[in-house]
Design a binder for these strands. Structure first.
Lengths: 141, 141
DNA sequence: AAATAAATGCAACTCAGTTGCATTAAATAG
DNA sequence: CTATTTAATGCAACTGAGTTGCATTTATTT
């Protein structure tokens, strides 16, 4: 739940690149990979080096501004922590990523966390759930 | 549910490397990365080139002998499809991976699949659930 | 406005995974 | 059980994501 204004609260300097990356990741609804972030920055006419983007993103992950996820592609994707907690449907035909929110699932996860703590002595801090399959538009194909 | 004996049924030649990789992945209970697979092969005195291991693994994934998963490490891990359906607890302190099986969760996933199909027109073929947190032995630290 | 500490850019690197091509081995036919 | 065919392998060179060291620049502090 952190915006660009919280940057200096976490001991980070508020630079053009950081605010731009934070803004684009909260604007877009899908998790982006590095190349997509670079393209967006280019469109925003913000010149930032690839290395800096990687470094910025790592810092933003560590400080809790963004999530780092994997969707079976062999690379990371990033999305803002400002977005409500959700999970992903990944279409294995067109690679489209659809966000889903399910209170039902979330409740179930919570109760599972308790079970896991009791039976394995494992304290769940975070979880990820991804579904892979065929989206609406690819169904007919 | 495929063993080394099913190799030629799927149009694959039964080579030393393939049977060794299949065997070690069914023997070990944890999902292994490429380096771990290479080490196991070395211990088994099976000489296989890194490239071949990658190629073998890709074929085995495609033919349904093994699963390819990601656990937020920036690399793939592989595990036998012979193992019963399960999910993973990943300790973010010691990196230990613990397998969990939960009928309760599995039932919930099934009913969620139906909901997702109805509301998004998305047909779920596969899913992955990983939990991240602190394991029993790291709790005190 | 000057000092200082952090952020950036660049080049060179690592590490997982891939590709082309010549060679070798497994399955099939004779 | 040898000859043929076709797939599998090894090697070297490559790609692409992500990292590191170091000199330079920029944001913040005084």
């Amino acid at each position: 739940m952190k915006t660009a204004d919280d940057l200096h609260k976490t001991g980070l300097k508020k630079t053009q690149g950081r605010t731009a990356i934070l803004r684009l990741l909260t604007d877009v609804k899908k998790p982006l990979d590095i190349n997509e972030i670079m393209k967006k920055l280019y469109k925003m006419k913000v010149t930032v080096n690839r290395t800096t983007v990687f470094r910025t993103i790592n810092i933003l992950v560590k400080k809790g501004f963004i999530h780092r996820i994997e969707l079976n592609e062999g690379k990371y994707r990033y999305e803002s922590t400002l977005l409500p907690h959700h999970h992903h449907l990944v279409c294995t035909l067109c690679n489209r990523i659809i966000d889903i929110e399910s209170d039902e699932l979330h409740l179930q996860i919570k109760s599972l966390a308790k079970i896991v703590d009791r039976s394995y002595g494992f304290i769940i801090k975070d979880h990820k759930i991804e579904f892979f399959g065929t989206c609406k538009s690819c169904k007919g194909i």
